[in-house]
Amino acid sequence: MNNTIETILNHRSIRSFKDIPLTDEQITMIVRCAQSAATSSYLQVYSIIGVKDPVKKQKLAELAGNQDYVANNGHFFVFCADLNRHKLAAELENVPLEDIVETLESTEKFMVGLIDAALAAQNAVISAESMGLGICFIGGLRNNLPEVANVLKTPDRVIPLFGLCVGVPDQQPGQKQRLPMENLYHVDEYMQDDEQFKQQLSRYNEDISNYYQKRTEGKRSHTWTEIVTSKMTKPVRMYMKDFLNNIKLPLK
């Protein structure tokens, strides 16, 4: 096993950071590694906003659900789907907007932006963790994207997707066990045996319940399926489609 694989397998979310800002060299290296990720058709449909201003970080922390580690970390990155630059590229090539607007506003190109940003972010995470830094993804920015977009001054066709806290860890939490490989890796076709799948989930539930009991000294004993079902029965961020339509990224 090499160092890269060890870094990946040792991943865990860090929610407490020492008051040590990242250096410019560390930020540059993380962004360069993010840019080295695969990108669909060389389109590079994403941008990264580094947030240093403590006032902005505090506001984003509030918008993300009062998660204080959004404000208190070594550096805060926001990954965005970005089709604005492609509109500008067309202008540079003297191509009228009406010739590209159908593509710009397609669900496919929106998905490309999501995927490109996620791939870049994972590269950023691996590079940060390889430097001994900790990270935590922040999906809570999507709780109120209009206000997040206002804080970050993003133009039309630029969507803040998620944040990434990076810094020197001030904790060493336990690692949550992932689903067993046989639960998510299929060979040649999707596994259709639902009863076998449920049996695997039941065994996984026992492991996760034990994990929470140990982590909380008996205060929690939730299973994975209990957690998932609870999340799925509480719709969140249902304004998203209207928001995308309003910033000229309608789902078509």
Rank of each mutant, 00 (worst) to 15 (best):
residue 191 M to N: 12
residue 74 G to L: 08
residue 74 G to S: 11
residue 60 L to Y: 00
residue 230 S to L: 07
residue 39 T to R: 07
residue 235 P to K: 10
residue 70 V to I: 09
residue 39 T to S: 12
residue 83 L to C: 01
residue 131 M to S: 13
residue 151 V to N: 00
residue 237 R to A: 13
residue 180 P to Y: 09
residue 101 V to T: 09
residue 82 D to Q: 04
residue 15 R to I: 10
residue 113 G to C: 12
residue 101 V to K: 06
residue 105 E to F: 06
residue 130 S to H: 02
residue 124 A to W: 15
residue 10 N to K: 05
residue 250 P to M: 09
residue 129 E to G: 02
residue 210 N to H: 15
residue 22 L to H: 07
residue 3 N to S: 14
residue 50 G to N: 02
residue 21 P to V: 01
residue 185 Y to M: 01
residue 248 K to E: 09
residue 74 G to C: 05
residue 231 K to F: 10
residue 1 M to S: 05
residue 77 F to W: 03
residue 90 A to W: 11
residue 212 Y to D: 07
residue 61 A to Y: 10
residue 192 Q to A: 15
residue 96 P to H: 08
residue 252 K to H: 13
residue 10 N to Q: 14
residue 28 T to L: 15
residue 251 L to V: 06
residue 96 P to V: 02
residue 64 A to Y: 06
residue 127 S to T: 06
residue 29 M to Y: 14
residue 5 I to Q: 13
residue 247 I to A: 07
residue 193 D to E: 04
residue 177 Q to E: 11
residue 15 R to K: 11
residue 210 N to D: 13
residue 49 I to K: 02
residue 5 I to G: 08
residue 212 Y to C: 06
residue 143 N to Q: 14
residue 126 I to E: 10
residue 165 C to A: 15
residue 199 Q to C: 11
residue 52 K to Y: 02
residue 87 K to P: 08
residue 187 V to R: 14
residue 165 C to N: 04
residue 216 T to P: 06
residue 152 L to D: 00
residue 121 A to H: 07
residue 151 V to Y: 01
residue 113 G to H: 04
residue 3 N to M: 15
residue 70 V to S: 07
residue 64 A to I: 03
residue 180 P to G: 04
residue 215 R to Q: 15
residue 30 I to G: 07
residue 90 A to D: 14
residue 230 S to Y: 14
residue 165 C to M: 03
residue 189 E to N: 08
residue 75 H to A: 12
residue 246 N to A: 05
residue 238 M to K: 06
residue 227 I to L: 11
residue 157 R to L: 14
residue 45 V to M: 11
residue 107 T to Y: 10
residue 239 Y to I: 00
residue 155 P to R: 08
residue 233 T to R: 11
residue 77 F to P: 00
residue 89 A to T: 04
residue 62 E to K: 03
residue 48 I to V: 11
residue 231 K to Y: 14
residue 30 I to L: 11
residue 165 C to Q: 09
residue 203 R to H: 14
residue 82 D to Y: 10
residue 18 K to G: 02
residue 11 H to W: 09
residue 11 H to Y: 10
residue 4 T to V: 12
residue 134 G to F: 13
residue 132 G to I: 05
residue 72 N to F: 13
residue 52 K to V: 00
residue 156 D to I: 00
residue 10 N to I: 13
residue 25 E to C: 00
residue 235 P to H: 12
residue 137 F to S: 04
residue 216 T to I: 05
residue 247 I to P: 00
residue 121 A to Q: 03
residue 57 K to A: 04
residue 29 M to I: 04
residue 185 Y to C: 00
residue 132 G to N: 10
residue 85 R to A: 07
residue 1 M to T: 06
residue 6 E to H: 13
residue 131 M to Y: 08
residue 244 L to Q: 10
